[in-house]
Design a protein around this nucleic acid. Structure first.
Length: 624
RNA sequence: GCCCCCGUAGCUCAGAUGGAUAGAGCAACGGAUUUCUAAUCCGUUGGUCGCUGGUUCGAGUCCAGCCGGGGGCGCCA
């Protein structure tokens, strides 16, 4: 029997209760001890809810069961002695850890890995995140995927898994060919200089190319039907003819791109370089670990699509339907989805679903993924289930090493809304540029920092650095603190507030601890990490109990892919620290032993806070 | 029409495998400071958990049906 994680009071108590239940009711020795942290501190530190389900199973009164468990429990060295008074309500058993046990558990947690050694069986996890499109300015819609995706990737890395980030760049297909065609034409005419072009220019070119290719055939038909004048008709006809020409040019360009025609390809490459430069710079500013090596654009799959679809056809996985090729997914084994996955259009062209199936094939077959995580907005849910279902049916999603299907998880997220409850836009209804949003956040943070610096003098350069960290922490925290599936309302004021569950509050808690250590003498600093922990006061105890929860919380994020659980935990921890800080002097503690104990508690708290913020990808500070 | 998601305090939101009197933060009100950084802490006020049934000793949580909001649904990405 492996020793339960020795720092974890829940595991230790569960072990003792399991033994007690086995002694009291050998016929139910497998029952779950149901140990959880108490909701209210006045009732106890932990509780066991095991008596109620056991009562049902054994046909006895829950109160009697609880009494029998209490009689048979051997907790002497772990918790305060149990009595009849420990049993409350229908049969809850309340537990209070012994002060020395809490100290002992904490000193075990205070190890290099903070209770999170690398998992025994590491998985290869592919995280699909970011997903920018070429020639499109980054806006608020691009904020969530990198922030959430990076936090999840870091969580899994921290747990010891092998994580491969994949930035599935939208860099191929007819829309990109349209811009490429337009830019090539304008460059040839000398209207633009490709070497000096910016992403804003590309963004405008993209919109213009879309517009010029838009064939208003319905408009023309309607004009005829409603008997519009010959002049209006002629205008529309001309427009349609122009669009036909532009469309044809775009198709030709796509063919040239696919053939790697040097001149066309150079224009495309320029578009890619300009876009990715902005994308990667944004990631860097956001402290998001996505770099050039994580890019896996749609273009990188282009050559694989035709052979892959041929494979699907030859094995009878794809079938023809109304001229298109589809993979049917009605079978529950493939998701039980009514809508089939279309992998080839009637005109022979491939779709984004085709590329996404190819991506799963590469991720599982070549990269060895055991687990596929998509950090993409919630609207893509059906599409992703279709693509995964098709890959499953084709066998592409079966990991060749384990022989098992790679686990599929859509870490879906909601929209960012303005304070009117509608999608976040500028007053004029345009998308908010991501770079502008970050800049405004940091500027507001800088004003707040200056305002709160008080009499402390902070050099301008450091003030700027503090504002940068505070602003980025605020924006990332705001994105991570709620259940990701929900929409949230963007508010500078709320995220930059220094009260409540905000990024600045968490940074401040850490800064206060670091400040204590700056004020401590060298001898204390050196001795603190090994001091004997003695937790007597309420503030110390609740901080200690909060610290012990850390590893379980990180593991739960690894499973649920819900970073807000860690954010909520860090807020609880920071709150517990703040209450401790208020009530328990550290450097001015009454005795040297107490001073050392509290210093160690501070040291451990700082390590957990920093580790947790690191997992979330939130930058920290020494001073603010 | 079918499918997915959401609905909890005035506001913003937590509530894992069903467990005690549903919790935070903000706002409002009242306290604490010769500060180890008050960007803090302590307290008070505030709820028909969208509605109705069902399962259960026990439902915010599970099931069914409604209501309200958002999104998606064969050849756009």
């Amino acid at each position: 029997m492996p020793e339960p994680a020795s720092f974890d009071p829940v595991a230790v108590l569960a072990e003792r209760f399991r033994a007690a239940i086995a002694r009291a009711f050998p016929e139910a020795a497998d029952a779950d001890p149901m140990i959880t942290a108490s909701r209210q501190a006045n009732l106890g530190d932990f509780q066991s809810n095991a008596a109620m389900p056991l009562a049902k199973r054994l046909g006895k009164k829950p109160r009697e069961i609880a009494e029998a468990i209490v009689r048979n429990a051997d907790l002497g060295d772990v918790a305060e002695p149990l009595t009849k008074d420990s049993i409350a309500g229908p049969g809850f058993i309340n537990l209070r850890l012994r002060a020395d046990t809490l100290g002992a558990l904490l000193s075990r947690l205070d190890s290099p890995d903070l209770g999170l050694p690398p998992v025994e069986h590491p998985q290869t996890v592919v995280v699909d995140l970011m997903g920018v499109n070429l020639a499109k300015q980054m806006h608020v819609g691009h904020l969530r995927s990198p922030i959430i995706g990076d936090a999840l990737a870091r969580t899994l890395e921290r747990l010891g898994h092998r994580v491969i980030r994949q930035n599935h760049v939208g860099d191929w297909g007819l829309p990109i060919a349209m811009v490429t065609a337009r830019l090539r034409r304008l460059a040839a005419a000398g209207t633009i200089d490709l070497s000096r072009i910016t992403l804003d220019d590309l963004d405008r070119a993209y919109a213009a190319a879309q517009a010029e290719c838009k064939r208003d055939l319905e408009g023309l038909a309607a004009a005829r039907r409603f008997g519009q004048g010959p002049k209006a008709l002629a205008e529309l006809e001309e427009q349609v003819m122009g669009a036909e020409a532009a469309f044809a040019e775009a198709r030709q360009t796509l063919v040239k791109l696919q053939a790697h025609d040097p001149e066309t390809f150079a224009v495309w490459q320029r578009i890619a370089d300009v876009t990715m430069q902005v994308c990667l710079a944004t990631c860097e500013r956001l402290h998001v670990n996505v770099t050039a090596e994580h890019s896996a654009g749609e273009s990188s799959y282009a050559a694989e699509l035709a052979p892959m679809v041929a494979d699907l056809v030859s094995r009878g996985i794809a079938e023809e339907s109304e001229g298109a090729l589809v993979v049917r997914l009605e079978d529950p084994a493939y998701g039980g989805i009514k809508e089939p996955c279309i992998v080839r259009k009637t005109d022979g062209g491939f779709l984004y679903a085709t590329t996404d199936v190819a991506a799963i094939r590469r991720r599982v077959q070549k990269l060895g993924a055991d687990r596929l995580i998509y950090v993409i907005d919630a609207r893509q849910n059906l599409h992703l289930r279709q693509v995964y279902g098709a890959s499953l049916r084709a066998g592409y999603a079966i990991n060749p090493r384990s022989g098992k299907p790679a686990e599929f998880q859509h870490a879906a997220f909601g929209m960012i809304l303005g304070d009117d409850g509608r999608p976040f836009k500028t007053r004029t209804g345009d998308n908010v540029k991501l770079a502008d949003l970050l800049e405004e956040t940091v500027e507001r943070a800088e004003r707040a920092v200056a305002q709160r610096a008080g009499e402390r003098e902070i050099p301008a350069s450091e003030r700027r650095a503090i504002a940068e960290a505070v602003g980025i922490a605020a924006i990332k925290h705001a994105d991570l603190c709620n259940d990701r599936i929900k929409d949230y309302v963007f508010s500078f004021d709320r995220m930059l507030a220094f009260e409540g569950n905000t990024g600045p509050y968490l940074l401040y808690a850490l800064v206060r601890i670091r400040s204590i250590f700056r004020n401590a003498d060298a001898a204390s600093q050196a001795a603190a990490p090994a001091a004997t922990l003695a937790l007597r006061e309420a503030g110390e105890k609740s901080l200690g109990l909060a610290l012990l929860r850390y590893p379980a919380v990180v593991r739960s994020v690894g499973e649920s892919l819900e970073p807000h659980r860690l954010v909520q935990y860090l807020f609880d921890l920071a709150s517990a620290f703040s209450a401790f800080y208020d009530a328990c002097p550290v450097l001015k503690a009454e005795t040297e032993a107490l001073r050392q104990s509290r210093l160690r508690l501070c040291h451990l708290t700082a390590r957990v806070l920093a580790d947790g913020l690191g997992i979330l990808g939130i930058p920290t500070l020494e001073r603010m």
